[in-house]
Nucleic acid binder design. Structure first.
Lengths: 217, 217
DNA sequence: ACCTGAACACCGTTCAAGT
DNA sequence: ACCTGAACACCGTTCAAGT
């Protein structure tokens, strides 16, 4: 781990069997369009949406999809990775824009919205499809450091208790979201914010003479 | 609720559009065979197994399946209801065969095995398919009283703390099982038994001078 | 290199013909 | 009443033909 700047392949996509090979510009454009279109279609119609529909809306032939994503599940996995990246990347932005406690709260809400919207996630992870094999590791690799940073500065600022790890918080919230599928995303948000309130309750220093009436949502 | 003996339709199947109509003997035999075959196939190949495979193994035409179960999901739901029934019916049997604490432990294991084996359950419940709409209610209606009886007599015997409801225990264990899908059913069993040990720990009267070395599993 | 889309295999569901 | 299975619609995936 001596890399000073780890590449999380946000935009570029590295393909099986073509390691290090540069993709042609038009192909890369197709890939981007495909991922964006697929994300939109999955969001509205679910991950079971027909491949043909995505190809049509993206303006390409079905063959193009299969050239870049050999299996239908590879496309789904790629979209998930994109959304994980977006969620992780939101952390430093929020940290720069808000004070530590508020940044943490907002990020957790963002995380909840991400998970709660993906009713296909649990299905995918337990399908046994090898395309999803690396997804849990990627999920953890990207999201845990993101939350850890927020958690640590909030703890340093005394706004939050310091004895809860990013890993268990990530897992607990995900668990709540999965369980709240039956109830809808409102329930998930409420339970998650209850959890964060719990974090605040056990902080070293209570709100004190801080502007404590800053909650609206 | 003045019925002295509620009918939980264990064996008979009541059909939409034919309320009260008796089914012919050969049809009933087909239904039973179908449910048994489907249960076996789902267990080995998962709930995505082709309808044709089930029809073939049951020795009937596909049309026969669709006559009794208009949608594929109706067959899945029927199999689930059967297994829920079997699990609920195991409670009084265990209660008659073992002392209260042991009966409770054994039933929870049975329940875990039921849930942990059904990786299709979460998928089904969140699919939005109307065939599964009544399943959660049926689940609760049958399983909650079954567990409640075990829990109450174990609590009366002082083997278990009395302040945990059947509903929350049922939910907690199911939650553990769902979450343990990634790890396999072993993890689920361990966490569930930990939970029951927790119930025991807070009992009114500790093991005392009871034959406490009765655990083997 | 990359793209296209007809073609193939497979699966859920229907329904005319049988008993 | 009930059963059968060919037929239909639809979807994932492939690959020969194009650029």
């Amino acid at each position: 781990m001596t890399d000073k700047q780890e590449d999380h392949d946000h935009s570029g996509v590295e393909f099986r069997g073509h390691p290090g090979r540069r993709v042609r510009a038009d192909a890369q454009r197709n890939i981007d369009t495909l991922l964006q279109t697929a994300m939109a279609v999955f969001a509205t119609s679910g991950v079971d949406a027909p491949v043909r529909e995505i190809a049509e809306k993206a303006g390409v032939g079905v063959g193009t999809i299969y050239r870049h994503f050999p299996q239908r599940s590879d496309l789904i996995a790629a979209v998930f990775r994109r959304e994980i990246d977006a969620c992780a990347d939101a952390a430093p932005v929020l940290a720069a824009q808000h004070e530590p406690g508020e940044a943490l709260v907002r990020w957790v809400q963002r995380y909840v919205d991400f998970i709660a919207a993906k009713r296909g996630l649990a299905k995918a992870l337990h399908s046994g499809d090898p395309a999803f094999d690396t997804l849990p590791a990627y999920f953890k690799k990207r999201l845990e450091p993101a939350l850890k940073a927020l958690l640590m500065s909030a703890a340093s600022a005394g706004e939050v208790r310091p004895d809860v790890s990013a890993e268990e918080l990530l897992g607990a919230v995900a668990s709540l979201c999965m369980h709240a599928f039956t109830q809808g995303p409102e329930q998930a948000r409420r339970m998650a914010s209850l959890l964060v309130d719990g974090l605040r309750y056990g902080a070293n220093s209570p709100p004190k003479y801080k502007k404590a009436a800053r909650r609206k949502a």
